[in-house]
């Protein structure tokens, strides 16, 4: 049984880490980009960003003034239990979000879409989003744990959705991918170089969800478990970096730090596609809370396990030990 109080205090720490500490995988990717960049203005931008991450950590100050729209992904081991139940868990995450908004401080970005009401705490109708996943018990960790993942992603530019069809083929997928990079890359509206997430398939809403999760819940350097999709990821990364556009839409060669693709089965007549850009402030933080009260922090959400990508009807509730 995991105490709701421990969830709240852990979530509070995660909000702080996400806003202030750039994840190492993205930092490594950006450093590699800075080394290869030869456009004078785009080089200057990348160097300024690297300096900015250091300043944020030194000052314990948010790395970007637009601290995004904080959201939560919660993954529950198959035997996880929360004291007070799931309503208590959600209350803990909403409290942590409100507290962190005031104490980090974060920008109170969340407002009512029509009345523009701002509670100055990033909490409101449907905010923060809380999404759930489940995972079979493993020999190593058992099943009585909870992963808390917070993602602070900007919200205005760099994302698009389109219904494509089988007749559009890979050529059509590439076209929409490039169009999204061009449209939102100019003037740096997408705050690139970014982790580009592509969602393919699912229904419309799930297509968006897949792409968003591909950009935010997979780290730089990870590859899809389907080798042919993994190859597409490499190819699309290279394609995006061949446009000749860099940071802020200046001439340059680094637009895409990595490209992650996630798929879901879709209607037989369609091939829906979404594109998402996780920006120069690719903010995520993760902690696993165990039933005995241990808390382990990390920056890899490790969301897309074999279970999350399963194709079969059934799946064992307990995963076998690895050989």
């Amino acid at each position: 049984m995991i105490p709701a109080e421990l969830i709240q205090s852990t979530a509070r720490v995660l909000m702080d880490k996400a806003a202030i500490e750039i994840p190492q995988d993205y930092l490594d990717g950006l450093q590699r980009a800075a080394e290869t960049e030869d456009g004078d203005l785009s080089s200057f931008v990348l160097r300024a960003m690297l300096e900015n991450y250091e300043a944020a950590k030194e000052d314990r100050r948010a790395m970007c003034g637009d601290t995004g729209v904080p959201r939560w992904f919660v993954k529950l081991g198959n035997e996880a239990q929360v004291e007070g139940g799931m309503v208590a868990l959600e209350a803990a995450l909403r409290r942590a979000t409100a507290e962190a908004t005031n104490s980090v401080p974060l920008r109170p970005n969340r407002v009512h879409p029509l009345w523009r009401t701002d509670h100055d705490n990033n909490v409101g109708i449907g905010a923060p989003e809380i999404e759930y996943g489940f995972e079979p018990a493993t020999p190593e960790y058992g099943g009585a744990w909870i992963d808390l993942i917070t993602v602070h992603k900007g919200g205005l530019f760099g994302t698009d959705y389109r219904m494509l069809f089988p007749s559009d083929g890979i050529e059509g997928i590439k076209r929409f991918y490039l169009d999204s990079l061009m449209a939102f890359g100019k003037r740096g509206l997408a705050c690139q170089p970014a982790i580009i997430g592509i969602g393919l398939g699912g229904s419309k809403d799930i297509c968006m969800t897949l792409g968003k999760r591909a950009s935010t819940l997979r780290i730089v350097g990870s590859r899809n478990s389907d080798p042919k999709i993994a190859q597409m990821e490499d190819e699309f990364k290279e394609l995006g970096n061949s446009i000749g556009m860099g940071a802020m839409g200046f001439v340059g060669k680094n637009m895409v730090i990595d490209c992650n693709i996630e798929v879901g089965y879709c209607h037989t007549g369609g091939m829906p596609m979404s594109v998402h850009a996780f920006c120069l402030s690719s903010r995520r933080a993760v902690a696993r809370i165990h039933a005995d009260g241990r808390v382990e922090h990390r920056t890899d959400p490790d969301w897309f396990t074999p279970y999350q990508r399963r194709e079969t009807v059934d799946w064992p509730a307990h995963q076998e030990a690895a050989e």
């Binding site: 200057f44 300096e51 000052d59 637009d66 740096g188 705050c191 802020m248």
Partner: peptide, 8 residues
């Protein structure tokens, strides 16, 4: 610059 160099 960036965007954004919020801490700087």
């Amino acid at each position: 610059v960036g965007y954004g160099t919020g801490a700087l």
